[in-house]
């Protein structure tokens, strides 16, 4: 139980995917102009990350390792994630128009989100069991959502500020990212063995 809590807390704030591991930066800068779209993106990522973690865990264990073709890991995982995203999209479109409106356009973007492939690869690299994998996937998604929502909140406020023309847009966002990473750095050393 303690181990699970450490994995969860660590991946949400200490080793936050965006601010400490640099995974999923494209949507972090691309879809953080408004809080509303950032939240939708975050929800979509939590959803896909958790499912992708579970599915790739089973595939790794019962296909790749069982048939000793671990070198196909990258190619299989990315195809599985792409197919999974498509399936989720179809499923949502059929079952929940409300969810479709919220997540709709963000789902396809997730296929090329390195955070999703990253979380699957890290689950395997750190040798997590199924429950740890689920907690890790869920936590990574939550951490992503936390960071992207804070970012969007700050950028909404900044839209009414005067910014030097050369620093507008991406450059300023990166500097905000720096300050956020710095403040999240304060969580370092939260756990001692």
């Amino acid at each position: 139980m303690e181990q699970l809590f450490i994995i969860f807390f660590s991946v949400v704030v200490i080793n936050n995917f965006i601010l400490a591991k640099f995974l999923g930066l494209c949507p972090f800068f691309g879809v953080s102009r408004e809080l509303k779209s950032a939240t939708s993106m975050g929800l979509a990522v939590i959803f896909v990350m958790t499912i992708a973690s579970i599915v790739t865990w089973f595939i790794n264990r019962y296909v790749l390792i069982a048939y000793q073709v671990e070198f196909l890991q990258t190619i299989v995982f990315i195809l599985v994630i792409a197919a999974l995203v498509q399936l989720v999209e179809l499923f949502i479109a059929k079952t929940s128009p409300m969810l479709q409106r919220v997540l709709g356009i963000y789902l396809p973007l997730i296929t090329t989100n390195c955070a999703v492939l990253g979380v699957c690869l890290l689950n395997i690299k750190d040798d997590y069991n199924l429950i740890e994998t689920i907690i890790h996937g869920l936590g990574a998604g939550l951490g992503f959502t936390l960071a992207i929502c804070i970012m969007a909140g700050i950028r909404e406020r900044l839209s009414v500020c005067r910014v030097p023309p050369s620093m507008q847009g991406f450059p300023l966002s990166f500097v905000i990212g720096c300050l956020m990473a710095l403040s999240f750095f304060g969580f370092q050393g939260f756990f001692t063995h």
Binding site: A20, F22, F174, G177, C178
Partner: peptide
């Protein structure tokens, strides 16, 4: 990590 964001922001 913070230094990475800062360097990238300033260079951009």
């Amino acid at each position: 990590p913070p230094g990475a964001f800062l360097t990238m922001g300033l260079l951009l």
